[in-house]
């Protein structure tokens, strides 16, 4: 019982201090939220593309919803809702453990963290959560502006759906966080962890559904992509939030499976890595 009370206190203090820290960087975080606009850029491309199928002359593409405009079985409204959802989901699943960890290891801040009776990964987790809380108002504002630009796509998900979408986003964040932790832990063995992170970013960009919903992929590529964690991190929660027809059980099963695989693997590698770790300097 006392352990639980201690944990709760540690969590509260960590979250409060990290939130205060992140609030100082709110301008930075606002800019960062703005740099996640790629899905919205892709939205305008895909909707324009869907309109082209209806009116090859291309007139009046920007005005109002054209009935019947569709591409690969997705209507204009579905496309718009999907990409706005993907934008929101992306904002709350971003992880940057690799960069924070690399800097901490390089500057020698990791050593004192290892001495504390608290797993350093908790510290990173709370700072991510605090950063997301700081980001929330900017994301809400940006999503609002974009809904104003495509008012015909405005929707409010059913309460049950919304709850499932939030749950899926939280799980997706956990998976993405663990993938990044895994890459960060490789820092113990190699200085190339950030190069590996670049490859991870690329896979995330093209396979997660940020640039195109997976429904538009050729079936073989789509099936191959679904064996990676990436589509479950963006595509699945975004479809849930957009209120699309989908097999929710399969999505949650995939997320749970990735969590079950990544969590023990990360912790094991962390323990092996810390044993190898030798601090630099005096």
């Amino acid at each position: 019982m006392r352990r639980v009370a201690r944990l709760a206190r540690v969590a509260r203090v960590l979250l409060a201090t990290q939130y205060a820290h992140m609030l100082e960087y709110r301008a930075e975080i606002a800019l960062w939220a703005l740099s996640g606009l790629v899905p919205l850029l892709m939205m305008s491309l895909w909707i324009h593309q869907a309109d082209m199928g209806v009116a090859p002359s291309g007139g009046g593409a920007a005005s109002g919803a054209e009935l019947g405009a569709a591409i690969g079985g997705l209507s204009r409204v579905e496309l718009a809702r999907y990409f706005i959802s993907a934008f929101i989901v992306r904002q709350f699943t971003v992880a940057w453990v690799v960069f924070a960890f690399e800097e901490d290891a390089l500057q020698g801040r990791l050593s004192p963290m290892l001495l504390q009776p608290l797993h350093p990964l908790w510290r990173y987790l709370t700072s991510h959560l605090a950063e997301q809380a700081t980001r929330l108002p900017f994301v809400a504002g940006l999503a609002g502006i974009f809904l104003l630009l495509v008012p015909w796509a405005a929707w409010w998900p059913a309460p049950g759906r919304l709850l499932l979408a939030v749950l899926a986003t939280v799980l997706a964040f956990a998976v993405n966080f663990l993938v990044q932790c895994l890459i960060a832990v490789l820092c113990f063995w190699s200085e190339r962890a950030s190069a590996l992170e670049r490859l991870h970013t690329l896979a995330m960009l093209f396979l997660s559904g940020l640039m195109a919903p997976l429904e538009l992929f050729p079936p073989a590529v789509r099936q191959a992509a679904q064996w990676t964690p990436f589509p479950w991190i963006i595509h699945f929660p975004a479809r849930l939030l957009a209120g699309a027809e989908l097999d929710a059980a399969a999505g949650f099963a995939a997320l749970a499976a990735w969590l079950a695989l990544l969590l023990p693997l990360t912790l094991l590698l962390w323990r092996a890595g810390v044993r190898r770790y030798a601090a630099m300097g005096s």
């Binding site: 593309q49 199928g53 591409i71 190069a195 896979a203 960009l205």
Partner: peptide
């Protein structure tokens, strides 16, 4: 790693443009 990242980036970009051309709509 730079070469690998370049290859991946190019392959992904080509794939995406390919998606737009599905169904013969042009871009």
């Amino acid at each position: 790693f730079d070469l690998l990242a370049m290859g991946g980036n190019l392959a992904g970009s080509l794939f995406m443009i390919g998606l737009f051309f599905q169904g013969g709509r042009g871009l």
